[in-house]
Nucleic acid binder design. Sequence first.
DNA 1: GCTAATTGCGAACGGTCGTTAGGTTAAAGT
DNA 2: ACTTTAACCTAACGACCGTTCGCAATTAGC
Lengths: 200, 200
Amino acid sequence: MSPRKSVAETAATRSRIIDSALTLASTDGLEGLTIGRLATDLEMSKAGVIGHFGSKEALQLAVLAAAVERFRLRVPARAVGARPGTERLTRAFDEWIDYMTEVEGHGGCFLTSVASEFDGRPGPVRDAVLDALASWSAYVTAELSTAIEARELPPRTDVEQLAFELNGVALAANQSIQLHRDPQAPTRARRAVARLLIAP
Amino acid sequence: MSPRKSVAETAATRSRIIDSALTLASTDGLEGLTIGRLATDLEMSKAGVIGHFGSKEALQLAVLAAAVERFRLRVPARAVGARPGTERLTRAFDEWIDYMTEVEGHGGCFLTSVASEFDGRPGPVRDAVLDALASWSAYVTAELSTAIEARELPPRTDVEQLAFELNGVALAANQSIQLHRDPQAPTRARRAVARLLIAP
DNA sequence: GCTAATTGCGAACGGTCGTTAGGTTAAAGT
DNA sequence: ACTTTAACCTAACGACCGTTCGCAATTAGC
């Protein structure tokens, strides 16, 4: 089933490609990502790179899927230890903000960048972005509902409105980190989240 | 000074190019904008298009400058009638939100999209984006300071923090409009702005 | 050991990219 | 009327794009 490398090594190559593609796409966008540059960076041929995916769009979808899984492993998975409701949500946004600052290079949330890049381009990539964002949104609203049931938030809280504002805080943090490289951004974002989630 | 068209007509051509470029760049980004497609849309030759600017980067900067001026004419200029402080700020964000929904096509704020596109690409375009955002940020913080002096906001208000959160609301509105096409986005955004600017 | 399967490469494809050179046309300056 | 100037064109440049073909190489299954 494999040529010069074992099956495990084949998967490793695929993973190596996606890793490098994520780095490239972080600065140039998922559309600005080119197979030629990817091949150069990996010291492979273009055919060798694209052979693992079939087309550039399939590669884009694979990169996006990898980014989504990284996000899931990094943010919601690390918040499962916290008590459901405002505590878990605070923890999740905390992890997200940390994640934004940690990413190698210039930082920022990859999914947020791609969401902005493809917001006006219909197609499978945009659909995948919408899926990922819907999943995250469902996570947030579910935790908010739990918080209301637990009386951590006022019973008449508008869940959608609060999710909207929390999302805005994350977007502002992303812009401050990625564009302005403001070292105070994480602190500001955490303060804003706390103000939204901790009843006054 | 002009060839087959008067000087006024020459400027009109330039303006026509920028108009079309703004439309193209709204969906494909400022980097995804290509001279060939622009020429096709305008029924001109590529040389005729780029001749007005010299290079693609110069064209990008011209498009960006045009977008910045449109924003200025549309948002801060329409708020000058309002009383300085929270009233003017509310009005400005109101206008901005309206502007996002009105834009032909899929809507959204062009400057916000470009800010995201170029946040990791150093160069003149990124610098111009930073300038525009700094100018807007200065406008917001100045009005916030005025509001504090006028006792419309608590005297110990953290101006930078509040500007950060207001910016987040605008970013959330932009994403909801452009990506999710959520018709409730303007309402949510206005509600969030009011909650931030109207003292409790 | 032989065959089958698969990875990756080299090379090429048609197409588009941004840019440039040179020529044509028409208006402006004199 | 003649020259200058500027807008716009056609044509072409080299570079790179995504994709495809056929081949070499190597491992897995038999």
